[in-house]
Amino acid sequence: MHSHERGQGFVEYALLISLIALTVILALQMMGVSVGKAFCDVAAVINLTSVCSPKVLCEDSFDSLANWKTFYGKPVTTNGKICLDKGTQVYNTCSMNTQRENYTIRLENALLYQGNGYGIFFRTVYNQKGANGYIFQYDPGLQAFVIRKWVNGKEIWQPIAKTPIPNGYPIYNTPHNVEIIVRDNLFTVLIDGQQVLQAQDDTYKEGGIGFRTWDHTEFCADRIAQFSIP
């Protein structure tokens, strides 16, 4: 009888600790703090970085267009590069199939030869009318880096974030590495390791990756990868 009561006491203590943990997690979520990120920050402090190291979710070195579906336009792959020109829209089937919420996109050696720019879709899904999601635009046409929303295949004209391209920036004929960090409602864009843009929005919760070019653009890139983030 006595040991039974002691066992019951342990269960109650365990229940109390679980409820405290649940309360803390819910409170952090309400405050907009990522529990996963907090966990990984702690893991990094105690040298457990492998627990939270990013994993490749989807990647493509552009040997073919097997992992890409064309919405319109004529993309090509040549010498391990994808090249898009004029009005083209393609999406990555791997990332579209998994429909993830949080991830990092790394686009290597993105090279704009001419034209008004190119766009990288993220957290995007396609319906019969077209893309629904976000796009980062490397946009010399607007002389800016821009993040916009798309609804039913139409871009919402007012960007959710926009920053001017600095004078003297090597826009054309210079390869750049573009990284987009998509975490909860915060989107951060880095070019060659430097943060150029950040936006916050709650409209779209999950989706994949794609490319867009327009007008007289000629654009190529070497490799794209989608990584997990905690």
Binding site: G9, E12, Y13, L19, T23, L26, A27
Partner: peptide, 17 residues
């Protein structure tokens, strides 16, 4: 006392949820 604390945290977590 233990059960009181369990009740308090249960109510609080339900409220937050």
């Amino acid at each position: 006392r233990l059960r009181l604390w369990i009740g308090i945290f249960l109510a609080f977590s339900l409220l937050l949820a």
